[in-house]
């Protein structure tokens, strides 16, 4: 269990706060698009997947991670600052990546976020590579690859799992199984949807957890992280339900209202709230206040992000290569070079 989780005498309340912040954040992401217009059109919300906060709480400072196109929640739970996140999502210079990456490429080396990825499964081997660095250099850290169930059908995952097991690397593969790869439900993508069972085939420690029970997620992830830290990499699958469509324009025509109602019944935030009240670990008014605080934080973050400006034109050519390296030649300069010679 992480320092944060261990230090707290009310871990469920902390997890509830994190999950509430994630949900409030994601709601503002949707609002941002409406208020700002075009920038950052590729928005994939993690509402319904907030139980992943339990995995994040099991990580230590110094651990690193990669995420996928639906990774806002993980980043926020690992220390992402909502204003700078929203600024990045909106293509603003004040964002984490100077407005060059956006939602699907957000990263923060400061908290060990090695990058979100817009290619399904694309970031998974980077976590393995980070773990290779840790092992080679004798650094005590684990790298966690977060991805969705869609990536369970990508070959690169299995190359990565095999190498991690073969070399006994400190890696945890975390599949956030929200039941859908875009509009394709997992039973239309795989004959055997028992994804955790695939771990054993590769020599990984396999674990499965219900993502609507964040305490169980924390407990299971803490065990998986301990195992990974000792050099036995693992695969943790967390089932949940993607409450909304794949992305902004998706109205989910491929699933019916009854299924959605059932799926949204597995709400990790509501479940944690009910449990807190049931166990008298918090009062209704306290939780309402906490919810309001999260909403205010995210409102302020959104207002701040919307007030930020896009990067200046010259930033186009920054960071294609390292600062002291020959940069690309801007088109106008090149055209001037060519045409000036004849005039």
């Amino acid at each position: 269990m992480s320092d944060v989780a261990r230090a707290s005498n009310r871990p469920l309340l902390d997890l509830y706060r994190t999950m509430r912040r994630i949900r409030s954040f994601e709601e503002r992401v949707g609002e941002m698009f409406v208020r700002q217009g075009t920038a950052g059109s590729m928005l994939h919300l993690s509402i319904g997947e907030e139980g992943v906060a339990g995995v994040c709480a099991a990580m230590e400072d110094g651990d690193s991670f990669t995420t996928h196109h639906r990774g806002h929640g993980v980043f926020l739970a690992r220390g992402g600052e909502p204003g700078r996140m929203l600024a990045e999502i909106g293509g603003k210079e004040a964002g984490y990546c100077a407005g060059k990456g956006g939602s699907m490429h957000i990263a923060d080396m400061g908290v060990g976020h090695l990058g979100a990825n817009a290619i399904v499964g694309g970031g998974i081997p980077h976590a393995v590579g980070a773990a290779l660095s840790y092992k080679t250099k004798g650094i005590d850290a684990v790298s966690v690859a977060f991805f969705g169930d869609g990536a369970m059908q990508q070959g690169l995952l299995y190359e990565s799992m095999n190498m991690a097991a073969l070399w006994s690397l400190p890696v945890l593969f975390v599949c956030i199984n929200n039941q859908y790869g875009m509009g394709t439900r997992i039973d239309r993508a795989a004959a055997n949807t028992d994804f955790a069972a695939r771990a054993e085939a590769f020599g990984l420690a396999g674990r499965h957890v219900d993502g609507s029970d964040v305490e169980m997620v924390l407990e299971t992830a803490a065990a998986a992280m301990t195992t990974a830290r000792s050099g036995t990499p693992g695969l943790l699958t967390m089932t949940c339900y993607r409450f909304f469509g794949h992305a902004r324009m998706d109205k989910s025509p491929y699933r019916d209202a009854a299924e959605e109602a059932e799926g949204r019944g597995h709400d990790p935030v509501a479940a944690a709230r009910a449990r807190l009240l049931d166990r008298s670990e918090a009062r209704e008014a306290d939780l309402d206040a906490l919810d309001a605080e999260a909403a205010q934080e995210m409102d302020a973050a959104l207002d701040w992000a919307l007030a930020q400006t896009q990067p200046p034109g010259a930033a186009m050519f920054d960071h294609v290569y390292a600062p002291d390296e020959p940069p690309p030649q801007p088109l106008r300069d090149r055209l001037s070079d060519v045409l000036r010679e004849y005039r």
Binding site: L114, G122, G129, A130, L132, S133, L156, S160, N162, M163
Partner: peptide
């Protein structure tokens, strides 16, 4: 024999100090 994995692992290793 995992060419994509070899390059992907190298990318992650390069980002973290190797």
């Amino acid at each position: 024999i995992s060419e994509a994995g070899i390059v992907g692992v190298a990318v992650g290793a390069a980002m973290t100090g190797l």
